[in-house]
């Protein structure tokens, strides 16, 4: 186990964490402002990836695809909010779970209907296709670094949006007292649609960026969705800061666990067994971390107004 490999794994963990943040930020925002638990967030991730792959294949430009992913996911989000989600705000969580579960079925099967069961592939754009040299002689793909960069930019952008703008002020006001801001003459319906579309666009962006690393296929959003749930539970539901820290924590734990645990068990048992036990434990590791955190802080690390 060399230092370069270790640095590479840390970067991979960061990249994964940043991608989770894009998902978790939307989820936690939607929950914080509207009190809605949205299982269909993974479907918006998938919509983004499919939009990007389709437009990139038709025009030959990844960048147009990226724009399309944002637009398609935001539009899908706004549409779903207006048609369905809007009716769920006053309902209990059970109804929200069922309705958004139904939305997953509709999105997944609808996508399979249109695009078929075969995965689509998305190429990394020319501009970002090389690799950079890391200290110690290893190479790391520029694209993954760019994903980390985008994630950091989004985190800063969200911080500014929520902390410094009028819209952000309304979002925060909506989190703390929705009746009051309604009474102050703010159109809550539009605000909610906007927040939902914003969250959807972030999920779509994540989907498009991941689409170039993996294949684009039906159901690709679900594993990410569940990890994003873990993130916001660890971070504290409703807290963007918690989502950021939770994402990095989960990203690093997941990646480094897969990398280090087999080595660790290799120290005192035969290699094949160590690989098996290490892999099994690594796949459970983040859930164990989550359980530990919740055992001590049931509201997560940075609970917003819970």
């Amino acid at each position: 186990m060399s230092l370069t490999l270790f640095i590479e794994q840390i970067l991979n963990g960061l990249q994964f964490g940043v991608m989770l943040f894009l998902m978790a930020a939307g989820l936690t925002l939607i929950f914080g402002v509207m009190g809605l638990i949205n299982l269909a967030h993974g479907s918006l991730f998938m919509v983004g990836a499919f939009a990007c792959a389709t437009v990139a294949a038709a025009t030959g430009s990844f960048w147009l695809g990226l724009v399309a992913s944002l637009a398609a996911a935001a539009a899908a989000g706004a549409l779903v909010e207006i048609l369905v989600i809007r009716r769920l705000y006053e309902r209990d969580h059970l109804d929200q779970v069922l309705a958004t579960f139904a939305l997953i079925l509709i999105f997944s099967e609808g996508t399979r209907w249109v695009f078929g069961s075969f995965p689509l592939y998305l190429d990394i754009p020319q501009l970002l296709s090389g690799a950079v040299h890391l200290p110690g002689g290893a190479q790391y793909p520029i694209y993954r670094l760019a994903v980390i960069g985008v994630g950091i930019a989004v985190a800063i952008g969200l911080y500014l949006l929520i902390g410094k703008t009028r819209l952000g002020m309304r979002i925060r006001a909506g989190e703390s007292d929705r009746e009051m801001i309604g009474a102050l003459g703010i159109d809550i319906g539009t605000l909610y649609t906007l927040v939902f579309a914003l969250g959807a666009a972030l999920a779509g962006l994540a989907g498009a960026m991941v689409g170039a690393l993996q294949s684009v296929q039906v159901g690709m959003g679900e594993p990410v969705l569940i990890l994003a749930f873990v993130v916001i539970v660890i971070g504290g539901i409703g807290s963007i800061k918690g989502a950021l820290i939770g994402s990095i924590l989960v990203g690093l734990t997941e990646t480094l666990g897969r990398f280090l645990l087999p080595h660790f068990f290799g120290l005192f048992m035969p290699n094949s067994e160590a690989a098996t036990i290490g892999a099994a434990l690594a796949s459970m590791l983040i859930y164990i971390v989550m359980a530990l955190i919740l055992a001590f802080r049931p509201q997560g690390l940075f609970a917003a107004n819970a």
Partner: peptide
């Protein structure tokens, strides 16, 4: 594609 319609019915 029955799951699509199942989704609609559940909704």
């Amino acid at each position: 594609h029955w799951q699509f319609f199942l989704g609609l019915i559940l909704l």
